[in-house]
Design a protein around this nucleic acid. Sequence first.
DNA 1: TTGAAAGCGCTAACAA
DNA 2: TTGTTAGCGCTTTCAA
Lengths: 348, 348
Amino acid sequence: MKFEPVTIKDIGKALGLSTSTVSRALRGSYEISAETKKLVLEYAEKINYRPNPIALSLKERRNHSLGIIVCEIANNFFSQAINGIESIAYNRGYHVIISQSHESYERESVILDHLASRSVDGLLISVSSETKDYEHFRQLYEKGLPIVFFDRIVNEINTHKVIADNFKGAFDATEHLIKNGCKKIAHITSAPYLSISVERLEGYKEALRKNGLEYDEKMVHYSYHGGMIYDEVEEALRKAFKQKQKPDGLFAAGDRITTACLQALKKLDKKIPDDIAVIGFTNTNMGEVFNPPLSVVRQPAFEIGQVATELLISMIESKRPVTEFESKTLQTELIIRESSVKVNNAKK
Amino acid sequence: MKFEPVTIKDIGKALGLSTSTVSRALRGSYEISAETKKLVLEYAEKINYRPNPIALSLKERRNHSLGIIVCEIANNFFSQAINGIESIAYNRGYHVIISQSHESYERESVILDHLASRSVDGLLISVSSETKDYEHFRQLYEKGLPIVFFDRIVNEINTHKVIADNFKGAFDATEHLIKNGCKKIAHITSAPYLSISVERLEGYKEALRKNGLEYDEKMVHYSYHGGMIYDEVEEALRKAFKQKQKPDGLFAAGDRITTACLQALKKLDKKIPDDIAVIGFTNTNMGEVFNPPLSVVRQPAFEIGQVATELLISMIESKRPVTEFESKTLQTELIIRESSVKVNNAKK
DNA sequence: TTGAAAGCGCTAACAA
DNA sequence: TTGTTAGCGCTTTCAA
């Protein structure tokens, strides 16, 4: 099947005008007489003329589209961030192309290639949990393709970056657990080389230190697939519970990891919060209806998306090469519900 | 900033060949000598040449991209369906552009226009809950743009359609509640003119009829924004509980509506399942960790996406106008957990 | 076996 | 004020 759209040529033919006249009339050029303009505009309206954006892109070497690469859209943090991205992009006349790496380095590379060769004007990237090597990003970036990293960033590449305050969020969550009587806090997080994992781990450690609890490596477990593989998470929890001193608190990172933890704890028949108090670093909007209602550290996902997009568009539209880069950190919010509040043990 | 890619012309210049020779060599044309081919191919590889897909699209009047319009990606049904769409699209060499209507008719129209004018080769659409008028679809469709509807379909437009068996899913859910002792079952669903609402309502009615329960219009409530506006849902539940005979069962349609119902029931201090047994028509993968674990009717979202995409691509690639259209219906799955099982009242 | 040239839809420099 | 023409990157006749 084919879709036969009207062109500027058709209009010219119908009206006995040259294509350039039509083109100018359509864009309201001052050189065209009011009459001709009116004629063209009305006819275009009548036949519902739409300029062919492909021809435009070819000409302008600009697409007015932004590529997004995230691990998964079925993740509240990312879907909210994407909404933020869209909200800015559409206002500024950009279209958005969303792609999912599904936490795979290989898919990420393929997508990157695809998007770049589709000539998106710039890229918003949150790297996959498998990605340890950044050459694929660097190559494109050095060729001049604007890139802004958000959430899971690449410190080694010098460009704009937008993140939540992972350190502080993790610190707050951990300290909250401690204040509620936890003495041994497990931390299940994504792959260790991800920026978010590093930042959160630091916050967790700092809270332990400040509150006089010892840091125990055995209490930290990495889910290399960001919770996408349930068994990884269950295994991590099983291990934590095999230590001589069992965890009485859990700080889980990420949407997927957190829900996987809840499922696993249920399976292991651990009562929340009495056996183990739980807090998740997640943007789920269902925390309230969980069993028990889940305490969370919430990231300003929508705003992160917005800020990242503004930075990207400013890069794209900048006349001269951009050399000053910003790293923005937005604050998280601690939402306490029942899962992290031990009824009897709380320190007073 | 600009991104300066290599062109076929650059290769020609570097190698002292004409663009046409380079073009042919690159596509392995039989007319080109092995030597020249090798020369060109190696050079292209070396400088990492990528053809400009925009130029290609302009030429071929094909984009190799599919547009998707759904209400929201932050919805498990849709994110799973999108994964299904992607899985087929990428294998067949198509790129996917995802857009969200956010349940707004106006945004849907704008997006539609945008996507069509961006020359996607075809469209996969699940209509917004506000959409009552289908002219915008019909116009494009009649111009020759291939469209496949999935989930929320438009019966009035004659093209391929793919849905879950909403009638049977609703029937099973309702009958299950009845078998578990419910005498008065509320049904909260999306806008009444949506295909899914109609089909599900029919299934609900049929189950009542078959089991000798009276259909009570007052027990059916419509959330015109598909649960996106929490207050709509809470209000609906309040109304249901104001009837002389209060509901002791609830069949909720859709991801959003279901979670909103759970929140509202909590707020209204109704115990699930004793005060009211609940089952949702939802693809959430968190049913298990809800309080109480949630019974659901699950749609084969991934497969729906796959089937719809196959049909769409077959339409796009068909040489002659397609005149035979399929309507595929995939089976749902009933997953019983605690929320719908009344401990004491079950009929034996 | 290779090259020149036209054309996809559009814009813009240059002519008229 | 309008038209002619070249060119964006590529493929594809037609000519050599």
